[in-house]
């Protein structure tokens, strides 16, 4: 149970009922309007429009290949790195179009961080992994400031207790769950406003998953979080807003509790009851 107590504080198990949030009171950080994605001649997304609330967890669910990850990667323009991908429509962060040619994608990604499906620590020390973002962006003015950023990021990611004595060891030597928390710490270290998580627990065992879910719940106090997940239970546990994707369409979106207890759409119902997926 070391891994569990390693966290700074033990909160009550996160589930829908324990975290009632009035989404309507939240401001909207991200607005997407009529977003389409083409890979070559193949259309992967058909006109997605959604609002993403501030300081809450929004989850994208849906069967494999439904476009949820593709949409997630539009939000910090990761699709730019894929040859032949074309994005249409608008996505605005605080009212600013992120696909505006005058906008710098480097700066955008510093504001919108990302955590990936498979833990992908760099082949560097734990310290350097976390310090990577602040270093490239020039966020720390001194060595001491950098130490501070690294330490606090590791604390926020709930990894500090486990790694504080071995910051110089390679990040690739950690366990899968630890690696993923290291990646979260790495993303936090840049102080992004939004954190995108692409199935962050799909490569982890249940215990590691539970720890990450708890972490996500904590992080929502300071960050806007968007998570793509395969698991409906996970969406129900960690998110306040849920969007259901199917075949490149956004089928339904709303408060997580509403989606899971009272879906308006037949397809959504079929999916959450396990008939499609």
């Amino acid at each position: 149970m070391d891994t569990l107590t390693g966290n700074t504080r033990v909160t009550q198990s996160p589930d829908v009922t324990s975290t009632p949030v009035e989404l309507s009171k939240r401001t909207t950080r991200l607005t997407a309007r009529d977003v389409t994605v083409h890979y070559g001649s193949k259309q992967a997304l058909h006109g997605i429009s959604i609002d993403i609330p501030d300081r809450a967890v929004t989850s994208f669910i849906g069967p494999s290949g439904c476009g949820k990850s593709t949409f997630l990667r539009c939000i910090n323009r990761m699709n730019d790195t894929i040859e032949g991908a074309k994005v249409g429509g608008t996505i605005k962060l605080d009212g600013e179009d992120i696909y505006d040619p005058s906008l710098d994608v480097v700066e955008l990604r510093a504001r919108i961080g990302m955590v990936f499906q498979k833990p992908n620590p760099f082949p560097k020390s734990i310290y350097d992994n976390v310090a990577y973002g602040p270093r490239i962006h020039g966020l720390a003015r001194s060595r001491a400031e950098m130490d501070e950023i690294v330490h606090s990021s590791l604390r926020k990611a709930g990894l500090w207790q486990e790694v504080k004595d071995r910051l110089a060891e390679p990040g690739t030597g950690l366990s899968g769950g630890q690696q993923q928390r290291l990646c979260i710490a790495r993303a936090i270290a840049v102080s992004p406003e939004v954190i995108l998580m692409d199935e962050p627990c799909s490569a982890l065992d249940p215990i590691a998953t539970a720890i990450i879910e708890e972490l996500i719940d904590e992080l929502r106090e300071n960050y806007t979080i968007v998570i793509v997940t395969h698991s409906m239970q996970q969406a129900a546990r960690v998110s306040q807003k849920t969007a259901f994707f199917h075949l490149g369409n956004l089928v339904e979106e709303g408060n997580t509790s509403d989606i899971f207890t009272n879906p308006r759409n037949k397809q959504t119902q079929d999916y959450i009851t396990g008939r499609i997926g």
Binding site: L108, M114, F116, N120, Y132, H137, A187
Partner: peptide
């Protein structure tokens, strides 16, 4: 995934 990790950080 390693490249994506770096791009994702800006």
């Amino acid at each position: 995934t390693l490249r994506d990790g770096a791009y994702g950080l800006g």
